[in-house]
C-alpha cells in the first residue's frame, strides 16, 4: 500500500505549481485557474488526512470547498468579462490603477 504522505506530497507539489501559476501568468483566466488548482491541492490533502484518520468529516469539507470553488468561478468569470469589456485585454499588468 502507498503511504498517505505520498498523497500529501502530490498535493503539496500541485499547490506549489498553482502558486507559481499565480505568480507568472499574465492571462487573467490562467491565473484564475491556478487559483482553482491551489484549492484542489488543498482538497486532495484534506481527503488524504481524512483517510488516514478515518474521519469522514473531511469529505464534507471538501464538498463545501467544491461548492465555494464553483461559486467563485461564476463570480470570477463575470469579473473577467467586465474587465475585458473595459480594457479590451486580459493582461493582468494592465489593471494597475490602484497604485501610488
Amino acid at each position: 500500500m502507498i503511504s498517505i504522505s505520498s498523497y500529501v506530497i502530490v498535493a503539496a507539489v500541485l499547490f506549489g505549481i498553482g502558486t507559481l501559476g499565480v505568480l507568472i501568468s499574465r492571462n487573467i483566466i490562467i491565473l484564475f485557474m491556478s487559483l482553482e488548482l491551489m484549492l484542489n491541492a488543498a482538497s486532495l490533502a484534506i481527503i488524504a488526512f481524512s483517510r488516514e484518520l478515518n474521519v469522514i468529516d473531511g469529505h464534507v469539507f471538501v464538498f463545501l470547498i467544491l461548492a465555494v470553488a464553483a461559486a467563485e468561478a461564476a463570480v470570477g468569470l463575470a469579473m473577467v468579462i467586465t474587465l475585458f469589456r473595459n480594457k479590451e485585454t486580459l493582461n493582468i499588468d494592465r489593471f494597475n490603477l490602484m497604485k501610488w
Binding site: 461548492a67 465555494v68 464553483a70 461559486a71 461564476a74 463570480v75 468569470l77 463575470a78 469579473m79 468579462i81
Partner: peptide, 16 residues
Amino acid sequence: TSILILVAIVGAVVMA
C-alpha cells in the same frame, strides 16, 4: 452553501 451560491449567481449576473 445554497445561499452562497445564490449570492454568487446574482453577483455574476449583475457584474456581467
